[in-house]
Protein backbone atom coordinates (compact mmCIF):
# COMPACT_ATOMS: atom_id res chain seq x y z
CA UNK A 1 0.00 0.00 0.00
CA UNK A 2 1.55 3.30 -1.04
CA UNK A 3 1.57 5.85 1.74
CA UNK A 4 1.03 9.54 1.11
CA UNK A 5 1.29 12.36 3.56
CA UNK A 6 -1.73 14.13 2.14
CA UNK A 7 -4.31 11.40 2.44
CA UNK A 8 -3.02 9.26 5.27
CA UNK A 9 -4.60 5.83 5.68
CA UNK A 10 -6.84 4.10 3.15
CA UNK A 11 -10.46 5.26 3.23
CA UNK A 12 -11.97 1.77 2.95
CA UNK A 13 -14.05 1.22 6.10
CA UNK A 14 -12.25 -1.54 7.98
CA UNK A 15 -14.47 -4.46 8.96
CA UNK A 16 -13.51 -5.49 12.49
CA UNK A 17 -14.59 -8.62 14.32
CA UNK A 18 -17.35 -6.74 16.16
CA UNK A 19 -18.75 -5.53 12.87
CA UNK A 20 -18.54 -9.06 11.41
CA UNK A 21 -20.33 -10.47 14.45
CA UNK A 22 -23.08 -7.85 14.32
CA UNK A 23 -23.47 -8.34 10.56
CA UNK A 24 -23.93 -12.07 11.10
CA UNK A 25 -26.42 -11.52 13.92
CA UNK A 26 -28.28 -8.91 11.89
CA UNK A 27 -28.44 -11.29 8.91
CA UNK A 28 -30.04 -13.91 11.17
CA UNK A 29 -32.47 -11.39 12.60
CA UNK A 30 -33.36 -10.08 9.15
CA UNK A 31 -34.01 -13.57 7.88
CA UNK A 32 -36.42 -14.19 10.77
CA UNK A 33 -38.03 -10.74 10.30
CA UNK A 34 -38.75 -11.49 6.66
CA UNK A 35 -39.57 -15.18 6.70
CA UNK A 36 -41.39 -15.52 10.03
CA UNK A 37 -44.61 -16.59 8.24
CA UNK A 38 -42.80 -19.75 7.14
CA UNK A 39 -40.72 -20.37 10.25
CA UNK A 40 -43.32 -19.79 12.97
CA UNK A 41 -44.12 -23.13 14.58
CA UNK A 42 -47.85 -23.85 15.13
CA UNK A 43 -48.62 -22.82 18.71
CA UNK A 44 -45.66 -20.41 18.90
CA UNK A 45 -46.01 -16.86 20.18
CA UNK A 46 -45.93 -15.18 16.75
CA UNK A 47 -48.75 -17.21 15.23
CA UNK A 48 -51.25 -16.24 17.93
CA UNK A 49 -50.91 -12.49 17.48
CA UNK A 50 -50.95 -10.08 14.60
CA UNK A 51 -48.21 -8.03 16.22
CA UNK A 52 -45.35 -9.86 14.50
CA UNK A 53 -45.09 -7.69 11.38
CA UNK A 54 -45.37 -4.46 13.40
CA UNK A 55 -42.68 -5.57 15.80
CA UNK A 56 -40.27 -6.53 13.04
CA UNK A 57 -40.96 -3.35 11.05
CA UNK A 58 -40.02 -1.33 14.15
CA UNK A 59 -37.03 -3.43 15.18
CA UNK A 60 -35.42 -3.71 11.74
CA UNK A 61 -34.41 0.00 11.63
CA UNK A 62 -32.92 -0.42 15.12
CA UNK A 63 -30.88 -3.44 14.02
CA UNK A 64 -29.76 -1.59 10.87
CA UNK A 65 -28.67 1.38 12.99
CA UNK A 66 -26.69 -0.90 15.32
CA UNK A 67 -24.86 -2.53 12.39
CA UNK A 68 -24.15 0.84 10.77
CA UNK A 69 -22.73 2.09 14.07
CA UNK A 70 -20.47 -0.94 14.39
CA UNK A 71 -19.33 -0.56 10.77
CA UNK A 72 -18.54 3.14 11.20
CA UNK A 73 -17.06 2.73 14.68
CA UNK A 74 -14.12 5.06 15.00
CA UNK A 75 -15.35 7.35 12.24
CA UNK A 76 -15.57 7.03 8.48
CA UNK A 77 -12.90 8.65 6.38
CA UNK A 78 -13.97 11.84 4.57
CA UNK A 79 -13.27 10.15 1.22
CA UNK A 80 -15.56 7.25 2.12
CA UNK A 81 -18.34 9.66 3.15
CA UNK A 82 -18.00 11.69 -0.05
CA UNK A 83 -17.87 8.54 -2.23
CA UNK A 84 -20.92 7.14 -0.40
CA UNK A 85 -22.78 10.40 -0.96
CA UNK A 86 -22.00 10.54 -4.68
CA UNK A 87 -22.78 6.87 -5.34
CA UNK A 88 -26.01 7.14 -3.30
CA UNK A 89 -26.94 10.13 -5.44
CA UNK A 90 -26.33 8.04 -8.56
CA UNK A 91 -28.55 5.28 -7.08
CA UNK A 92 -31.26 7.84 -6.28
CA UNK A 93 -30.97 9.33 -9.77
CA UNK A 94 -31.30 6.04 -11.67
CA UNK A 95 -33.96 4.50 -9.44
CA UNK A 96 -36.96 6.36 -10.96
CA UNK A 97 -36.10 4.83 -14.39
CA UNK A 98 -37.21 1.47 -13.05
CA UNK A 99 -40.42 2.68 -11.41
CA UNK A 100 -43.62 1.75 -13.14
CA UNK A 101 -42.22 -0.50 -15.84
CA UNK A 102 -42.78 -4.15 -15.01
CA UNK A 103 -39.78 -5.53 -13.22
CA UNK A 104 -37.20 -3.09 -14.58
CA UNK A 105 -34.75 -2.74 -11.71
CA UNK A 106 -32.09 -0.11 -12.22
CA UNK A 107 -30.49 -0.07 -8.78
CA UNK A 108 -29.06 -3.52 -8.24
CA UNK A 109 -26.30 -3.35 -10.85
CA UNK A 110 -24.94 -0.21 -9.19
CA UNK A 111 -25.05 -1.76 -5.73
CA UNK A 112 -23.37 -4.94 -6.99
CA UNK A 113 -20.63 -3.12 -8.88
CA UNK A 114 -20.10 -0.64 -6.04
CA UNK A 115 -19.89 -3.39 -3.44
CA UNK A 116 -17.49 -5.28 -5.68
CA UNK A 117 -15.07 -2.35 -6.09
CA UNK A 118 -15.26 -0.74 -2.65
CA UNK A 119 -15.64 -3.81 -0.46
CA UNK A 120 -18.38 -5.49 1.62
CA UNK A 121 -18.52 -2.95 4.49
CA UNK A 122 -18.84 -0.02 2.09
CA UNK A 123 -21.40 -2.01 0.10
CA UNK A 124 -23.60 -2.52 3.14
CA UNK A 125 -23.60 1.20 3.97
CA UNK A 126 -24.15 2.07 0.28
CA UNK A 127 -27.23 -0.19 0.12
CA UNK A 128 -28.69 1.60 3.14
CA UNK A 129 -27.84 5.18 2.19
CA UNK A 130 -28.71 4.75 -1.49
CA UNK A 131 -32.22 3.45 -0.92
CA UNK A 132 -32.79 5.89 1.96
CA UNK A 133 -31.75 8.89 -0.13
CA UNK A 134 -33.90 7.83 -3.07
CA UNK A 135 -36.89 7.28 -0.77
CA UNK A 136 -36.40 10.76 0.70
CA UNK A 137 -36.12 12.34 -2.74
CA UNK A 138 -39.23 10.65 -4.14
CA UNK A 139 -41.37 10.71 -0.98
CA UNK A 140 -41.44 6.91 -0.87
CA UNK A 141 -40.75 6.40 2.82
CA UNK A 142 -42.95 3.67 4.24
CA UNK A 143 -43.02 0.48 6.28
CA UNK A 144 -41.39 -1.33 3.36
CA UNK A 145 -38.28 0.90 3.44
CA UNK A 146 -36.47 -0.91 6.32
CA UNK A 147 -36.92 -4.23 4.54
CA UNK A 148 -35.73 -2.83 1.21
CA UNK A 149 -32.72 -1.13 2.78
CA UNK A 150 -31.76 -4.22 4.71
CA UNK A 151 -32.08 -6.58 1.74
CA UNK A 152 -30.31 -4.21 -0.66
CA UNK A 153 -27.50 -3.72 1.86
CA UNK A 154 -26.90 -7.46 1.96
CA UNK A 155 -27.02 -7.69 -1.85
CA UNK A 156 -24.17 -5.15 -2.05
CA UNK A 157 -22.32 -6.80 0.82
CA UNK A 158 -22.47 -10.19 -0.91
CA UNK A 159 -21.00 -8.70 -4.08
CA UNK A 160 -18.04 -7.49 -2.04
CA UNK A 161 -17.44 -11.00 -0.68
CA UNK A 162 -17.21 -12.68 -4.09
CA UNK A 163 -13.77 -14.15 -4.78
CA UNK A 164 -11.14 -11.94 -6.37
CA UNK A 165 -10.15 -12.50 -9.97
CA UNK A 166 -6.75 -11.81 -11.56
CA UNK A 167 -6.35 -8.58 -13.51
CA UNK A 168 -6.04 -10.23 -16.92
CA UNK A 169 -8.45 -10.37 -19.85
CA UNK A 170 -9.72 -13.79 -18.84
CA UNK A 171 -9.95 -12.66 -15.23
CA UNK A 172 -12.07 -9.65 -16.17
CA UNK A 173 -14.42 -11.81 -18.25
CA UNK A 174 -14.75 -14.27 -15.34
CA UNK A 175 -15.44 -11.40 -12.96
CA UNK A 176 -18.27 -10.09 -15.13
CA UNK A 177 -19.75 -13.56 -15.48
CA UNK A 178 -19.59 -14.14 -11.71
CA UNK A 179 -21.20 -10.74 -11.03
CA UNK A 180 -23.96 -11.43 -13.58
CA UNK A 181 -24.77 -14.83 -12.04
CA UNK A 182 -24.72 -13.28 -8.57
CA UNK A 183 -26.99 -10.48 -9.83
CA UNK A 184 -29.58 -12.94 -11.15
CA UNK A 185 -29.49 -15.03 -7.99
CA UNK A 186 -29.69 -12.10 -5.59
CA UNK A 187 -32.51 -10.39 -7.50
CA UNK A 188 -34.66 -13.51 -7.32
CA UNK A 189 -33.91 -14.02 -3.62
CA UNK A 190 -34.62 -10.34 -2.90
CA UNK A 191 -37.99 -10.65 -4.63
CA UNK A 192 -39.02 -13.72 -2.64
CA UNK A 193 -37.90 -12.26 0.71
CA UNK A 194 -39.63 -8.90 0.19
CA UNK A 195 -42.74 -10.73 -0.99
CA UNK A 196 -42.61 -12.76 2.18
CA UNK A 197 -42.32 -9.69 4.38
CA UNK A 198 -45.45 -8.16 2.88
CA UNK A 199 -47.46 -11.32 2.25
CA UNK A 200 -49.44 -11.52 5.55
CA UNK A 201 -50.54 -7.90 4.94
CA UNK A 202 -51.34 -8.03 1.25
CA UNK A 203 -53.99 -10.72 1.38
CA UNK A 204 -55.86 -12.18 4.32
CA UNK A 205 -58.48 -14.52 2.88
CA UNK A 206 -58.67 -17.15 0.17
CA UNK A 207 -56.38 -19.77 -1.27
CA UNK A 208 -53.28 -17.58 -1.48
CA UNK A 209 -53.39 -16.11 2.03
CA UNK A 210 -51.06 -16.86 4.89
CA UNK A 211 -52.56 -19.32 7.39
CA UNK A 212 -51.44 -18.36 10.91
CA UNK A 213 -49.94 -21.44 12.50
CA UNK A 214 -50.41 -23.44 9.32
CA UNK A 215 -46.92 -24.91 9.38
CA UNK A 216 -44.15 -24.85 6.80
CA UNK A 217 -45.55 -27.18 4.13
CA UNK A 218 -49.00 -25.61 4.04
CA UNK A 219 -47.71 -22.04 3.91
CA UNK A 220 -44.85 -22.80 1.51
CA UNK A 221 -47.21 -24.07 -1.18
CA UNK A 222 -49.46 -21.06 -0.62
CA UNK A 223 -46.47 -18.72 -0.83
CA UNK A 224 -45.34 -20.32 -4.09
CA UNK A 225 -48.83 -19.91 -5.54
CA UNK A 226 -48.95 -16.30 -4.33
CA UNK A 227 -45.53 -15.53 -5.81
CA UNK A 228 -46.53 -17.19 -9.08
CA UNK A 229 -49.71 -15.12 -9.23
CA UNK A 230 -48.19 -11.79 -8.29
CA UNK A 231 -44.53 -11.07 -8.34
CA UNK A 232 -42.78 -13.78 -10.33
CA UNK A 233 -42.97 -11.69 -13.50
CA UNK A 234 -41.44 -8.75 -11.63
CA UNK A 235 -38.73 -10.90 -10.06
CA UNK A 236 -37.71 -12.42 -13.38
CA UNK A 237 -37.77 -8.96 -14.95
CA UNK A 238 -35.53 -7.70 -12.16
CA UNK A 239 -33.09 -10.59 -12.66
CA UNK A 240 -32.95 -10.04 -16.45
CA UNK A 241 -32.46 -6.27 -16.23
CA UNK A 242 -29.82 -6.65 -13.53
CA UNK A 243 -27.85 -9.20 -15.56
CA UNK A 244 -28.17 -7.10 -18.72
CA UNK A 245 -27.08 -3.91 -16.96
CA UNK A 246 -24.16 -5.63 -15.21
CA UNK A 247 -22.94 -7.04 -18.54
CA UNK A 248 -23.53 -3.79 -20.47
CA UNK A 249 -22.21 -1.24 -18.01
CA UNK A 250 -19.91 -3.48 -15.97
CA UNK A 251 -16.69 -3.00 -17.96
CA UNK A 252 -17.09 0.79 -17.99
CA UNK A 253 -18.35 1.26 -14.42
CA UNK A 254 -15.74 -1.07 -12.91
CA UNK A 255 -13.01 0.86 -14.74
CA UNK A 256 -14.37 4.27 -13.69
CA UNK A 257 -14.87 3.28 -10.05
CA UNK A 258 -11.48 1.57 -9.82
CA UNK A 259 -9.87 4.70 -11.20
CA UNK A 260 -11.61 6.76 -8.52
CA UNK A 261 -10.57 4.25 -5.86
CA UNK A 262 -6.97 4.44 -7.08
CA UNK A 263 -7.03 8.23 -7.04
CA UNK A 264 -8.45 8.17 -3.51
CA UNK A 265 -5.72 5.73 -2.47
CA UNK A 266 -8.45 3.31 -1.52
CA UNK A 267 -6.67 -0.01 -1.46
Amino acid sequence: MPTTEVHGAAPRPPVRWKAVLSLALAAGFGLVAMSWPLLAVPGGALTETTSGPWMFALLLPLVTAVVLMQLTDGGLDARAVAMLGVLSAVVAAVRPFGAGAAGVETVFFLLILGGRVFGPGFGFILGCTGLFASALLTGGVGPWLPYQMFAAAFVALGAGLLPRTPDTKAGRVTELAVLAVYGAFSSLLYGVLLNLSFWPFAITGGNLAYVPGGGLSENLSRLLAYSLATSLGWDIGRAITTVALVLLTGPLLLRVMRRAARKANWH
Binding site: L68, G85, A93, I125, T129, A133, L137
Partner: peptide
Protein backbone atom coordinates in the same frame (compact mmCIF):
# COMPACT_ATOMS: atom_id res chain seq x y z
CA UNK B 1 -37.01 14.86 4.78
CA UNK B 2 -34.15 17.29 5.38
CA UNK B 3 -35.41 18.11 8.86
CA UNK B 4 -36.05 14.41 9.46
CA UNK B 5 -32.41 13.76 8.59
CA UNK B 6 -31.35 16.18 11.33
CA UNK B 7 -33.12 13.94 13.85
CA UNK B 8 -30.89 10.96 13.01
CA UNK B 9 -28.99 10.00 16.21
CA UNK B 10 -25.60 11.68 16.45
CA UNK B 11 -23.90 8.30 16.58
CA UNK B 12 -24.89 7.81 12.91
CA UNK B 13 -23.39 11.19 12.01
CA UNK B 14 -21.18 9.95 9.14
CA UNK B 15 -23.97 7.99 7.50
CA UNK B 16 -26.37 10.92 7.71
CA UNK B 17 -23.71 13.22 6.23
CA UNK B 18 -23.42 10.77 3.32
CA UNK B 19 -27.21 10.97 2.79
CA UNK B 20 -27.10 14.78 2.94
CA UNK B 21 -24.33 14.74 0.32
CA UNK B 22 -26.45 12.40 -1.82
CA UNK B 23 -29.49 14.67 -1.58
CA UNK B 24 -27.52 17.66 -2.79
CA UNK B 25 -25.48 15.82 -5.45
CA UNK B 26 -28.50 14.17 -7.14
Amino acid sequence: PRRLLRSVPAALYEVSVAVVVALSVA
